[in-house]
């Protein structure tokens, strides 16, 4: 054929033999390719290790010097070089708890509504709007919080809770209504983690086999009964996984919280009082930290936060993974 003459590299003339074709030879390309993608893949574990090691080393002097009291003491005084992160740890846990308390029922409500009740034309747009909440940068939440949420809390929300509802008698809603407070941080965090919890729960609910709810409906259960008795129990651990994933987000949120929590090293039972979180403590003091001891203490706070979020996320992933595995096992 005429084509073959156009492909000269395929045919090699050797020792006067008409055509000897080349099948020998080594290809180095594959080795380089495999090497490159393996290298990139290994970068991820290396990065995680590097982050852990860098921060741990930087925080080590603090851990060594203060030991366990670093986590339990509430004496944080950079001037006297005394560092106890208890208020920040307390604030992180409390603000995240408020966030989950507010966001979980809402997120669950949205996802059940969208996956079970809402007419089809409504599902996509509402789901999209909820997802959009996750796209708003933390600093924009903070900006909105400062100029809209705080004034609202100062008047009328906080006085209403304290005086009108009489909750001021409890230690949780007492004290002056400044605005910047644990409550403000908790509310903004609730808005921020809502899309994460909602999207995981929606996925988990959609993974519940049809037969599960149809069986209940066929027995005469109303739709709500089918959801409450058949669907939600089935999806339970996945939903808990989603909530814990939201917790992971809330624990590490920085900017919005820094802008709204008031930044005070104090443990107060009242949600109206200002507080601190680990992330906002770092954000606030890091650039002003002049002594090595102060820097090391902030690094130690960072390392504590790092460990807590890894543990929380690992639990969440495990729970979600367990549901998706059992769901796919049922489908097979």
């Amino acid at each position: 054929m005429s084509e073959s003459s156009l492909v000269p590299t395929l045919e090699v003339v050797e020792n006067g033999e008409p055509t000897v074709f080349r099948i020998h030879g080594r290809h180095v390309g594959d080795g380089i390719y495999q090497g490159a993608i393996t290298f990139f893949a290994v970068c991820i574990p290396l990065l995680v290790a590097l982050i852990a090691v860098e921060i741990a080393i930087a925080g080590w002097p603090t851990f060594r010097h203060f030991g366990l009291s670093f986590l339990t003491s509430s004496d944080w005084d950079p001037v006297k070089k005394r560092f106890g992160a208890a208020p920040a740890i307390y604030g992180t846990l409390v603000s995240s708890a408020i966030a989950l308390l507010l966001a979980t029922p809402l997120a669950l409500g949205v996802s059940v509504f969208l996956s079970e009740f809402a007419p089809h034309w409504l599902r996509q747009p509402v789901g999209f709007l909820v997802d959009l909440l996750a796209a708003i940068p933390s600093v924009v939440y903070g900006l909105w919080g400062i100029f809209v949420l705080l004034p609202l809390l100062r008047d009328p929300v906080m006085p209403f809770l304290r005086d009108t509802l009489g909750l001021g008698n409890t230690p949780f809603f007492s004290g002056p209504a400044y605005g910047p407070s644990m409550l403000a941080a908790g509310i903004i965090l609730a808005i921020m983690v809502l899309p994460y919890i909602a999207s995981v729960s929606r996925e988990v609910l959609l993974a519940v086999p049809r037969a599960q709810r149809e069986a209940a409906m066929a027995l005469g259960a109303t739709r709500w009964e089918a959801i409450w008795r058949a669907v939600l129990p089935y999806a339970k651990s996945g939903i808990i996984g989603g909530v814990i994933l939201g917790l992971g987000r809330a624990l590490g949120e920085t900017m919005a919280v820094t802008m709204l929590i008031g930044n005070r090293q104090e443990i107060s039972a009242s949600l109206f009082a200002p507080g601190y979180t680990m992330a906002s403590l770092i954000a606030n003091e890091f650039s002003e930290a002049s002594s090595d001891a102060h820097l090391s203490a902030l690094m130690a706070v960072g390392f504590t936060l790092f460990v807590i979020t890894i543990v929380v996320n690992a639990i969440a992933r495990w729970l979600v993974w367990r549901v998706s595995r059992s769901a796919s096992g049922q489908a097979a």
Binding site: L47, I55, T309, N313
Partner: peptide, 13 residues
């Protein structure tokens, strides 16, 4: 794990 790390941790790293 990396995806779940707080952004402030990434900053100090």
């Amino acid at each position: 794990v990396l995806n779940g790390l707080p952004s402030i941790v990434m900053g100090i790293f």
